[in-house]
Amino acid sequence: MINRLQTLGRWGLIRFERLGRGSLFLMQVLAGLPALLLRPRLALQQVYATGVLSLVIIIVSGLFVGMVLGLQGYNTLVDFGAEESLGVLVALSLVRELGPVIAALLFAGRAGSALTAEIGLMKATEQLSAMEMMAVDPLARVIAPRLLGGFIAMPLLAAMFSAVGVFGGYFVGVGLLGVDDGSFWSQMQSKVELQEDILNGVIKSVVFGFVVTWIAVFEGYDTVPTSEGISRATTRTVVNSSLAVLGLDFVLTALMFGDF
């Protein structure tokens, strides 16, 4: 019994230690951000690596998620003769929830894992130590641009996901199933609020982008410098950031749309 308690206690302490290490790491990286203003190209390259290269999966997924929403929503709404509300259904689900969340999950799988593997390999091949030897701070030179790049890229990807998804729903609803064009847009425009829905969606995607990139760079930097360690760190990035996104999504939704 005492042994079990001890195991639980050790597990808890290790978690807290890791969380603390992650926070200290974040502080150090944030301290390295101002130096980045002198060399914005470093961040630019990371926006390319995390953002531009994730475009295909984000746009294709957005289109198909929107199209499926259109089909499923139509089938349900048509029973009530309310198929004109399809636009509202598609737009609200995408802008409030699916856009930020699915974009963040895809971003964690596509860009987060790559960040972790890249930084982990740099550590395993002692490139980070070599930088320290040359009095170059790897946190400012390697980590900070990646954090900033992911932070910039993620909200833009989420916005594209939602916009493409709305057009996917429009294509299926209006193009294939025959919902009235004007009702689709006018109902959507009368129900979707700029502040309440779109701004909150953008805030969500900013938070998710920050958390996913933070977890990815920290797991990479904190990896055990072996090939097995890198593979575990990459897995942990995807699992932990997905869990963090889903958990945070509930908290943010409760704060934004709940009444407490």
Binding site: L44, Q45, V47, Y48, G51, V52, L55, A91, V95, I152, A153, P155, L156, L157, A159, M160, S162, A163, V164, V166, W185, S186, M188, Q189, S190, V192, E193, L194, D197, I198, V202
Partner: peptide, 28 residues
């Protein structure tokens, strides 16, 4: 690289613009 990132940022901002203008009720 710069052109690609520029296009990416422009596309992202355009998506936000579409969401604000077309999806919400700013203007018809």
């Amino acid at each position: 690289l710069e052109i690609a990132v520029g296009l990416f940022v422009a596309a992202g901002l355009a998506a936000l613009f579409v969401l604000a203008m077309k999806v919400s009720n700013l203007t018809a």
